[in-house]
Computed example of a mutant assay.
Amino acid sequence: MKNFVTELDPVANEEGGSLLAIFDEYKYLLENDLNGYDLLTYGFNYIQRLPYWNSIKKNFIEMLVFDALIGNQDRHPFNWMVLFYPNDEIRLSPIYDNGASLGFRFEDSYLLKMIENESMMNKYMKNTKSKAGIFEKKQVKVKQLLNYLITEYPKETASIIEKINDFNITEYNNYINSLSFISEYQEKWLLKIIPFRRNKILQWVKEKERKS
């Protein structure tokens, strides 16, 4: 964490999974038969029991929506951390371990197929799942998670959606074009996938707002 934290050093840090495991019901959180909205409701009711939930809530929600943007499907509770500072301040750590994102398993040949096929891109986006920072193995579809966050945490979700809306695509494209260590197809993919996912997220938000 010293590589991430440049301000006052925290006196302690704990992974999310270790923090959630202090409650007796953690085994049920891992092994229940719930899914979809019911699973999200139980999971967030569970995490809200952390005594410092309000200190990390905004950044936690932002992390989940950012994961939706990059297609991160492995944000389990041991992939985030809480930092405890000597002045009694408590923060969510900077996000890390984002490797399971951006079609990380796709070969160049498959990336080319995706780039050239709109229906494949839509299917990839629609089928993206998330562990929501709470579940070790269970997942929910990203669209369902986003709808849940908009409903239950409207203020925090609106904050990160505004950032996604204002995302500087030109600056992003210039950065991707500057990378020398990725293949030609990886470059084309990265130039395509982030604007595509950004637009889909904004579209889903508008759909949710209309229905509300």
Rank of each mutant, 00 (worst) to 15 (best):
N3T: 12
V5Y: 09
T6Y: 12
T6C: 04
E7Q: 13
E7Y: 07
E7L: 07
D9Y: 03
N13G: 09
E14G: 00
E15K: 14
L19N: 08
A21H: 02
I22H: 08
I22E: 13
Y26C: 01
K27W: 05
Y28F: 15
Y28I: 08
L29R: 08
L30T: 11
N32T: 07
N35M: 06
G36E: 12
D38M: 11
L39M: 15
G43N: 08
Y46G: 06
I47R: 06
P51F: 04
Y52I: 02
N54W: 00
I61V: 15
L64M: 14
D67K: 05
A68K: 00
I70S: 04
N72F: 05
Q73W: 02
D74F: 07
H76K: 06
H76C: 06
L83N: 14
Y85R: 04
Y85A: 03
I90T: 10
R91L: 04
R91T: 02
L92E: 08
P94Q: 06
P94S: 05
P94R: 04
P94T: 05
Y96S: 01
D97V: 07
N98L: 15
G99I: 00
A100R: 12
S101P: 09
S101G: 08
L102E: 04
G103I: 05
R105F: 13
R105N: 09
E107A: 13
D108Q: 03
S109V: 13
S109N: 12
S109W: 08
L112W: 02
L112V: 14
M114G: 03
I115V: 11
I115E: 10
I115M: 09
E116P: 00
N117R: 06
K123A: 10
K123Q: 14
M125S: 09
M125D: 10
N127S: 10
S130H: 04
S130G: 08
K131P: 01
G133T: 11
E136C: 02
E136V: 13
K138H: 14
Q139T: 15
V140D: 10
K143S: 12
K143F: 07
Q144G: 04
Q144A: 09
L145D: 10
Y148N: 07
L149A: 11
P154D: 09
K155W: 01
E162T: 13
I164E: 07
N168P: 06
N168C: 02
I169L: 15
I169W: 03
I169F: 03
T170R: 13
T170H: 11
E171R: 15
Y172W: 08
Y172M: 04
N173F: 03
N174M: 08
S178V: 08
L179M: 14
S180M: 03
F181L: 05
S183A: 04
S183E: 04
S183W: 01
Y185P: 00
Q186H: 03
Q186Y: 01
Q186R: 15
K188V: 01
L190P: 02
L191C: 04
I194C: 06
I194N: 09
N199V: 00
K200Y: 07
K200E: 14
W204L: 11
K206M: 07
K206Y: 01
K208Q: 11
E209M: 12
E209T: 14
